[in-house]
């Protein structure tokens, strides 16, 4: 069988219909991962020892369990042990499972980002009599965010690709649609190359956006003399 360009090109209008769903899953799962990961990072860094150990256990478990197994636990397993989870939709289960899984990776990334902020920055805040909350929010967090951004971006890239696993729960997203098309036409190569290209392009666009944000955030740390004209706006935005 030869490669059919006509069929290949004709696949895209059908497949791109599912991009919003894949993006929706990835973005909501990422939000869950950032919120859960962020809160648990604070617990791991600043809470009492027993709570820190619980977070370590959480990280160890969710990093150690394969994503597919985790999704099956959430979708098929949890409804068996608790009525709360009965009737959970496949989409919700996929988003929750992916979000929790990635939060475990983010805890490590956020922790490294925060602990890499120079101790002198914190001491300066202390001697100027700032509260710990103020030091954390205004000094540590902006600097840690820049440190953590590249690795956090990689997590989102992984997450976007892992949304394709949602097909195993019955969610029809890009990959699931591709699988249906391939089964119908028996042109597996064209279909899966087209599916792969769509993920690739989404990730190229995301990588470009992340680079833009990184450049924006790293402005204070570059050895370029600042433009003095917009001083009012600069001051009010940072402090």
């Amino acid at each position: 069988m030869t490669f059919s360009w006509t069929y290949f090109i004709g696949l895209f209008p059908q497949l791109i219909k599912y991009i919003p769903l894949s993006l929706f899953m990835a973005v909501v799962a990422m939000l869950i991962a950032v919120i859960v990961g962020g809160l648990l990072t604070l617990v791991q860094l600043y809470a009492a020892k027993p709570f820190q150990l619980l977070v370590k256990l959480y990280v160890s478990f969710f990093r150690g369990v394969p994503t597919l197994v985790l999704l099956f636990i959430v979708y098929y397993g949890l409804p068996e042990i608790s009525p709360t989870f009965k009737g959970i939709s496949a989409l919700t289960a996929a988003i929750a499972g992916l979000g929790v899984k990635q939060s475990a990776y983010l805890i490590e990334i956020f922790r490294a980002g925060i602990t890499s902020v120079d101790e002198g920055q914190i001491e300066a805040g202390e001697t100027l009599n700032f509260s710990f909350t103020r030091i954390f929010l205004s000094i540590i967090l902006p600097q840690a965010a820049l440190n953590a951004l590249p690795a956090t971006g990689n997590t989102f890239v992984s997450l976007l690709k892992e949304t394709s696993l949602a097909f195993t729960l019955g969610v029809t997203e890009i990959f699931a649609d591709g699988k249906l098309l391939a089964s119908a036409s028996l042109r597996f190569f064209e279909v899966y190359v087209a599916v792969g290209l769509i993920y690739w392009v989404m990730i190229i666009i995301y990588t470009w956006a992340q680079k833009y944000v990184e450049d924006l955030l790293s402005k204070p740390y570059r050895r370029v003399v600042a433009n003095v004209v917009d001083s009012d706006q600069q001051s009010s935005s940072a402090i």
Binding site: D118, G120, Q121, E123, A124, G125, L128, F130, S138, I139, P142, Q143, P220, Y221, A226, S231, Q234, S235, A238, I239
Partner: peptide
């Protein structure tokens, strides 16, 4: 130990 994420002026205002 100037705050790296703030300008000189913002450091002094902080």
């Amino acid at each position: 130990n100037l705050f790296k994420n703030l300008t000189a002026l913002e450091n002094v205002m902080s």
